[in-house]
Nucleic acid binder design. Structure first.
Length: 695
DNA sequence: CTCTCCCT
């Protein structure tokens, strides 16, 4: 358009707003538009919204779809000019989108794609890593030049397959040793990721082992062959048990098409599917939308903040389960972020403050409480570090060294205090690149955390939360952190394992935690992820009594006494205690009783006044803050992870794999048509890009 | 004895 960026055409993303009053066309991320919707629910500023990559069905996409639909209806009712919407999707789930938008017309456009031959495995493969390696060498030895992209599930598998390739190459005839194996996954430092873009010296071919990062985010040039394991690691959330699982699962048909498409970007290509046609037919059409497999606290708080109070009837394109919605609402009520009036939910003052911050509610709760606890500076530092991917860099070939170097940051108080230590050292070293390298720290993640901290600081000032530091009083920091993580407590059992207080599940300290191997009596964790075991990640130690207080959601004051029912502590029973004056300070004393006798009592905090003020908010609680239902102990099967200790020894050379591993004839996808349509009455249109896959 | 990918 030949205009200066930020004038007529501009963009707006998290840390940058390149728009002005002249701007007519604005590029923005879905999250940014959702933020704007809080102050402008009808999206008055916009005439047309083009929502791209809708097929990815991220939480933000789904939330935005609902918010836009609601805005369309309201604008229609209020005779405000229509909000036109164009949904762009790369796969053929157009019906679903069209139905959702009142049978909006669908317009098909042909994607630019070269021909791709689809090859299916003739037999089921029990070991997809083995199959992938065999296929790679098969392509390398029998097929024309062109690089190979292998879709795998995670770092460990990728590194293991690369080791196998490197061990195998020397066994090949000298003239066919020109194969270079490269890894690609998000946790890899940027400089290593960029190696996949380099052209190699003459005659050398690349084989890239990647996660789904190569499906959409990173496009690698010169790929002619795709090897698709048919597997992906994906996260889901169980609102009843409160833990997330991270499991290797079969991909969807849409994902399979996306992966295959990576072979035909510059030339015709071949996609080798390491699964049979029958297995493929069993794949679901699309992955389950993320909104149906995550904790909804953030989503619901956002919806309520936009002014949609009837959250239970919010028009989701794919509605999450009622259990999940209710448990998230319960969490928000506990935090004092929302309150209910006849099935309608409203933001409280605390909630209004919480939504200012672009972090999950469990984290924004901490920022809000940090004001009276006087540790805002430390809290936002820790939260910015929790907002980025792992800052510790542990390369597979220097594991011991990296772990050794990281030891100097270890804190007996846990991982969050350790994070704080790393950050402070990084600052003292003046954000030095060399320091990061020597200390095995991901510089890009740490820099991103610095930006996030800046954003959170600015927002704190806006919310009149001064950036006070607790001056190395780590105890108050841990207490403040606990206010957001009250649901995430576990205690030590006699056999050395841990049990969550709320759901009584057996859990373990994650081996990457600095508390691994130690046995603190009480522990608070950031999240619960089930992989090979149910692991608590990012833990910290906490005094028992503080835990008791925190989990008491309903407390009452009777003169100089207080009592609270502690649903998470059936093993201990009701918690009560008294207040006392000591040197002008108010002390909160907790008494633990057994058969009416006080067996133990403790002063919670010397700065009782401060603490009490904090708890008054918590105690006053909310009439709706019901105790949690009693959840029965139950055994849950720990899925054993797919075999990762792969060795290449098993196939003894290369002569026997032709028989074992062959492919079906290529298949041809249907051709596509084009037609013209006007927009529907509310102004919605669905555009589907169809990749024509031909022989 | 070890965590896919996005994003406010």
């Amino acid at each position: 358009m030949n205009t200066e960026l930020g004038t007529v055409v501009g963009y707006s993303v998290r840390f940058e707003d390149m728009t002005s009053s002249q701007t007519k066309i604005k590029y923005l991320t879905d999250g940014t538009l959702l933020r704007e919707a809080i102050s402008d629910p009808l999206l008055h500023k916009y005439k047309v919204i083009i929502l791209d990559e809708a097929h990815e069905r991220t939480v933000q996409t789904d939330l935005l779809l609902g918010v836009i639909k609601k805005a369309q209806r309201l604008r229609n009712q209020q005779h405000i000019p229509v909000l036109k919407v164009i949904i762009m999707s790369a796969t053929i789930d157009c019906d679903h989108f069209s139905q959702y938008f009142n049978k909006a017309p669908v317009y098909y456009i042909r994607g630019r794609q070269h021909d791709i031959q689809m090859m299916y495995s003739k037999e089921k493969q029990s070991d997809y890593m083995n199959a992938a390696l065999i296929t790679v060498f098969q392509i390398y030895q029998n097929q024309d030049e062109g690089d190979i992209l292998v879709f795998s599930t995670g770092e460990e598998e990728i590194e293991s397959m690369i080791r196998s390739v490197n061990e195998t190459i020397p066994l090949l005839p000298l003239e066919s040793q020109k194969l270079k194996a490269l890894p690609l996954y998000a946790a890899l430092p940027l400089s290593h990721q960029q190696r996949v873009f380099k052209t190699l010296e003459n005659g050398f071919r690349k084989v890239i082992f990647a996660t789904n990062i190569a499906e959409t985010s990173i496009t690698i040039p010169n790929i002619k062959y795709v090897v698709d394991s048919g597997k992906v690691k994906s996260r889901s959330y169980n609102s009843v048990t409160g833990f997330e699982t991270l499991k290797v699962q079969s991909i969807s048909k849409a994902q399979a098409a996306q992966r295959a498409g990576r072979a035909g970007r510059e030339m015709s290509g071949i996609c080798y599917r390491l699964y049979t046609k029958e297995e493929y037919n069993e794949f679901r059409d699309h992955a389950i939308p993320e909104i149906q497999r995550c904790n909804l606290a953030n989503v619901l708080l956002h919806i309520i903040a936009i002014g949609i109070n009837d959250v239970l009837n919010f028009d989701f394109m794919d509605k999450p389960s009622e259990d999940n919605i209710n448990s998230a609402l319960k969490q928000l009520v506990h935090f004092g972020a929302i309150e209910a009036k006849q099935e309608l939910y409203y933001l409280t003052d605390v909630g209004t403050l919480m939504v200012i911050f672009p972090v999950e509610p469990k984290f924004s709760k901490m920022i809000v409480t940090s004001k009276s606890m006087g540790c805002t500076e430390e809290i936002i530092t820790i939260l910015s570090l929790l907002s980025v991917d792992n800052i510790y860099y542990i390369p597979s070939n220097q594991k011991d060294m990296a772990n050794e170097v990281h030891k100097k940051f270890i804190s007996s108080e846990g991982d969050l205090i350790k994070l704080l230590k790393v950050y402070r050292n990084f600052k003292t070293a003046k954000e030095n690149k060399k320091w990061c390298k020597e200390n095995f720290i991901h510089i890009n993640n740490l820099k991103l955390a610095t930006d996030i901290k800046k954003q959170l600081s600015d927002l704190c000032l806006k919310a009149s939360i001064p950036l006070v530091s607790s001056n190395n009083n780590t105890e108050v920091i841990r207490k403040c952190l606990s206010t957001g993580l009250v649901f995430n407590t576990a205690y030590l059992q006699k056999d050395g394992t841990y049990k969550t207080r709320l759901t009584k599940q057996e859990v373990y300290i994650h081996p990457s935690s600095c508390l691994f191997g130690t046995k603190p009596e009480n522990i608070i964790f950031n999240e619960l992820v089930q992989t090979s075991k149910c692991y608590m990640s990012i833990d910290f130690r906490i005094g028992e009594l503080f835990v008791l207080l925190l989990v008491s959601t309903r407390c009452h004051r009777f003169g100089s006494r207080w009592s609270g029912f502690s649903p998470a502590l059936q093993c201990v029973g009701p918690v009560s205690g008294r207040f006392a004056r000591s040197g002008g300070c108010l002390e909160v004393i907790v008494e633990i009783k057994q058969q009416r006798r006080v067996v133990r009592q403790d002063i919670v905090d010397i700065n009782g006044d401060i603490l009490f003020r904090e708890f008054e908010g918590l105690f006053a609680g909310n009439p709706l803050a019901q105790p949690f239902e009693d959840i029965e102990d139950f055994a849950h099967p720990f899925d054993s992870r797919n075999s990762v200790n792969f060795t290449f020894d098993r196939i003894h050379g290369f002569n026997d794999f032709h028989d074992r591993y062959t492919f079906d004839e290529p298949t041809v996808a249907d051709d596509t048509q084009q037609f013209d349509h006007p927009l529907d009455q509310f102004g919605s249109l669905v555009v589907v890009e169809v990749a024509a896959i031909k022989r």
